[in-house]
Amino acid sequence: MTKSPIIEIAHVDKWYGDFHVLKDVSLSVAEGERIVIAGPSGSGKSTLIRCINRLEAHDKGRIAVDGIELTEDLKRIDEVRREVGMVFQQFNLFPHMTVLENCTLAPIWVRKQPQEEAEATAMRFLERVRIPEQALKYPGQLSGGQQQRVAIARALCMNPKIMLFDEPTSALDPEMIKEVLDVMVGLANDGMTMICVTHEMGFAREVANRVVFMDQGEIVEEAPPAEFFTAPKSERTKAFLAQILRG
């Protein structure tokens, strides 16, 4: 019995004016799968995952998340956003609220949870990302790595089925990358469906079911990490790997 994929992207095209940013992209993600999307900058990887929670709109093709078609219908978009959590490169924590308030905001206002319940959930997830003691601090008082972990907890508090990561460690100082990656690995081990755009190939090797290589708006190659790193099929993939794995 194969379950239908939790994310279905079928022949999606997108243009920014005349610039063709996504070219006939198709991708299927099963529940519990961990996908790493890699590629040079400008290849459309961020645009693709931002289409999954409709932060960007695709122009052609079909995207379905957990059976819900993504169209202009606002109600469906809201449903999808409740099921999909996102972690941004710039963290985007709300600076005028405490860490705890950041995490309880959406559960209270979107899922209409009572405050006590939301706070209990938030503390649980803050413990999961290993910074429960920072609950009453403001984002400005935390380090980059701590802020990103709070961002992960904030997304988890909505109990999403899918987590999207848009270059979560690219804005971090090197010594803080590990703490965030550890949290993401923990999430993966708990069975969360994850799509990560990242340059961290070590993470891909450890956790990904599939690595998807995008270049110039199209999916060039996808394969399990072992195969992807040792025996890439396309010339473009080989060139890319040579670049990033050097040094």
Partner: peptide
């Protein structure tokens, strides 16, 4: 990014 984060959370 603030607006994006809020919309991504479903607000």
């Amino acid at each position: 990014g603030q607006v994006e984060a809020a919309r991504a959370l479903g607000l």
